[in-house]
């Protein structure tokens, strides 16, 4: 018997992503994977999966899905928007907690708040074969994920576990702050010496706005032009996620998960790994400023952030019986246990 989530509506850009397909960049294969891996890990932990299991990455607004299985446990993370259950009985499930949905339940992820990227994890994961060690969707070459492409209306997402295990539903005790850092931190280089001193100063002082050219490959920024010292062509070299490349027009592009493996524009700096999940949550129009740190500082921040994420995941605890049986909106309006659920209060309008 089949067990699946049926996409009645796909949403503007929904893809299957895990933590990426490292190990194949020498063959030109992008790493891909979640834009906000922190939220992906939390979503998986809430439904009892290994943290790197594949989930649905939802951009801007979500799909409308129908449960075509005895039941499935789900959790929505990375946004302050709730899951909206449309049928059989309308209700909401707050983000950052798990819920079991019975066969025939129709639910949707509404327009996202607090981020443009969210993750819907399902207990047991999707029954999709990994390709080159990952279930992430490689859009460039059309493989991985569901048929190598974004979700389309009518798609069936096969579930690996036909019915949820007997564990209690869980919620996150400490909801992470989705706001971007006041200044996005970067490490100068690898080609900062291709730029004038004025360009480096501008990068660290000016404001840059994310343009509409923002997708899983990168964020094209608009701001004062960053001046090259001698031309904007370099002999192609490797690209790290977070690299800030500057083409001839002097407008920087921050490269994200789907970036190509090599490139011929000089890279003035690289956003530190700890600040990449925040970039993955930002929408066009957001304004960024940058500050420089050393590699050693960035690595300390990386390790500290990893530890904080472990603490957040360790704060996952069983949902109280009352909270599980009532909708959070009803609880909030009744102001019964607002202290208990304050962590998820931001989910409501």
């Amino acid at each position: 018997m089949s067990a699946a989530l049926i996409a009645q509506k796909a949403g503007p850009f929904t893809t299957v992503q895990d933590l990426g397909r490292a190990g194949h960049q020498a063959a030109g294969i992008p790493v891909s994977g979640a834009l906000d891996p922190a939220s992906l890990r939390i979503a998986n932990a809430l439904v009892g999966n290994p943290e790197g299991e594949a989930a649905l990455e939802i951009r801007l607004m979500g799909p409308v899905l129908k449960v075509d299985a005895p039941a499935v446990r789900v959790a929505l993370c990375g946004t302050s928007s709730p899951l909206q259950i449309l049928a059989p009985e309308p209700r909401e499930v707050p983000p950052w907690q798990s819920a079991v949905l019975e066969r025939g339940t129709v639910f949707r992820v509404p327009p996202l708040k607090g981020s443009v990227t969210a993750y819907l994890a399902v207990g047991g994961g999707f029954d999709i074969a990994p390709v080159l060690g990952s279930r992430s969707t490689c859009l460039r070459a059309g493989f991985g994920g569901l048929k190598g492409r974004a979700l389309a209306d009518g798609d069936a997402l096969p579930l690996a576990m036909p019915a949820p295990d007997g564990r209690a539903d869980m919620r996150l005790g400490r909801v992470p702050d989705l706001a971007p850092p006041a200044r996005v931190r970067l490490v100068l280089g690898p080609q900062d010496d291709h730029f004038s001193a004025a360009a480096i100063a501008t990068l660290l002082e000016a404001e840059f706005r994310i343009t509409n050219e923002a997708d899983r490959m990168g964020l094209r920024l608009a701001g004062p032009a960053l001046e090259h010292k001698a031309g904007y062509d370099i002999t192609s070299d490797g690209i790290a996620t977070g690299a800030i490349q500057v083409p001839g027009d002097g407008q920087p592009i921050i490269l994200l998960a789907d970036h190509q493996t090599t490139g011929g524009y000089p890279k003035i700096a690289t956003v530190i790994s700890a600040d990449l999940p925040a970039l993955g949550r930002l929408a066009p129009g957001a304004v960024l400023t940058f500050s420089a740190v050393t590699v050693a500082e960035a690595q300390d921040i990386h390790i500290a952030q990893k530890r904080r994420l472990s603490e957040v995941i360790a704060s996952i605890a069983p949902l109280s019986v009352e909270a599980a049986s009532l909708s959070s909106r009803a609880l909030l309006s009744a102001n019964l246990i607002s202290g208990v659920i304050s962590a998820t209060a931001q989910a409501e309008d």
């Binding site: 190990g23 020498a26 002999t235 960035a298 690595q299 990386h302 390790i303």
Partner: peptide
């Protein structure tokens, strides 16, 4: 994690919680 050879450089991708710069 992996190495990427190009015309004139080798990019080494690594996990900074295991080995630092």
């Amino acid at each position: 994690i992996e190495t990427v050879p190009t015309f004139r450089s080798l990019t080494v991708h690594y996990d900074p919680s295991v080995i630092d710069h």
